[in-house]
Computed example of a mutant assay.
Amino acid sequence: MAHEIQLISDGIGLAVIGDPAAVDAFLASAGMPSRELDTRRLSRVVGGRWVKLTQVPAQVLDTYGLRANGTSDAPTGALAGVMAQLALEQARDEVDDYVAGTGTRIDDLLRAQADTAVAGMIRAQAAIEEALTHRADAGGIPETTLSTAQGTSLIVAYTQAYALRRLRALADRFEGAETSDDRAAAAEQAASAAQEWLAVVARSLQLQDSLQVLELDRMLDSALEELDHYLEHLRFARNERLEVLSKACTRLVERIDAAIAAARDAVAPDSALLRTVIESRDRVVVTVRDFEDGLGIESGREALDAHR
């Protein structure tokens, strides 16, 4: 029937499937932002929209229980792949917003590094964006364009690892800080550089997500029988990367907290050096919070709130 819709969730997003008018009316009534669900690969699906699960009002889930005049089953087959692509595209947009908010000129930062391989991520981004543009405009990607984009995965991973090393170096500098002056200098450096390297990490993760979108196109077109296994691997690998990033952020904050404790033992409570370390720590916490919120990383807030 034309008025029927179906709600299907994979734990990350919510697919609202049915007559386009009914789908639009349902989304409007719930006030949920959505993305168009590409139904070209979905048999017997007239129309649909996709909503990030965290943007679904609680009362919608309470009322419908993922059921609206239809059934609610875990998505399988092509629908699962299309929903995964939409989740990755949503994450891409969120990274764009985050990076724009930092004001970091990522290309300039990469070009300035002594490790010239890192600057290769600029070319990698151009290749991946070209493939995505073909995908959006023409509905398909020339084989050479796709091959060039997929060939950049090692460059992106290398640059991500490089940026993480720079973040760890900011944290490690506190271990060698023996005086209050050293601690203050380390804290100021962390406050000024952490945001830049976190922006590079975010961009690299975004490019990895983009490559996954392209790979899912291939799976949906020619390897549908392998899709469930691939999606399981994709989610595991992405969660692992986010966990590594979260730990790097937490480690940096913990090192600054240790420096604050050491400074309090060594200088007067109203010391300018102690104030410098605490103020720098506050800047780093804001930077880390913005990064984790921008990438949808859920981590414990205890360490971040230790020295408000």
Rank of each mutant, 00 (worst) to 15 (best):
A2R: 14
E4D: 15
I5W: 05
L7V: 10
I8M: 10
I8T: 14
D10N: 15
G11Q: 13
G11K: 13
I12M: 14
I12K: 15
A15K: 04
A21V: 13
A22P: 03
D24H: 10
L27C: 06
P33M: 09
S34A: 05
T39D: 01
L42G: 03
L42N: 03
L42Q: 07
V45D: 03
G48S: 04
R49T: 06
L53M: 13
L53S: 08
T54W: 15
L61R: 09
T63R: 12
L66I: 11
N69W: 14
N69D: 13
S72M: 11
A74Q: 14
P75T: 11
G77W: 04
M83H: 10
M83I: 15
D97E: 12
D97V: 13
Y98I: 03
A100H: 13
G103Y: 07
G103H: 11
G103E: 12
I106N: 05
L109P: 00
L109W: 05
D115P: 04
T116W: 08
V118M: 02
V118Q: 01
I122S: 08
R123P: 07
A124F: 05
A127M: 13
L132E: 07
T133R: 15
H134S: 06
G139V: 11
I141K: 00
P142W: 09
E143D: 14
A149V: 01
G151F: 09
T152N: 04
S153V: 10
I155V: 14
I155P: 02
I155L: 10
V156N: 01
Y158V: 04
Y162D: 03
A169N: 06
L170P: 00
A171D: 02
A171R: 01
E178M: 15
T179F: 05
T179S: 12
T179G: 06
S180C: 12
S180R: 05
D181R: 15
D182Q: 06
D182S: 08
R183M: 06
R183K: 08
A190V: 08
A190W: 03
A190K: 02
A191K: 00
S192P: 02
A193Q: 11
Q195N: 13
E196H: 11
E196Y: 07
V200D: 01
V201A: 00
V201M: 01
V201D: 01
R203W: 02
L207A: 04
Q208V: 10
D209P: 02
S210R: 08
R218D: 15
R218N: 15
D221T: 15
L224A: 13
E226G: 13
E226H: 15
L231H: 06
L231W: 03
H233D: 15
H233K: 14
H233R: 14
A237E: 13
V244Y: 04
S246V: 07
S246L: 06
R251V: 06
R251N: 07
R251Y: 06
V253M: 08
E254G: 08
I260N: 04
P269T: 11
D270L: 09
L273M: 07
T276C: 04
V277Q: 00
I278E: 12
R281K: 11
R283G: 00
R283K: 06
V286E: 14
D290H: 10
F291Q: 02
E292G: 07
D293S: 13
D293F: 11
E298K: 12
G300V: 08
L304A: 04
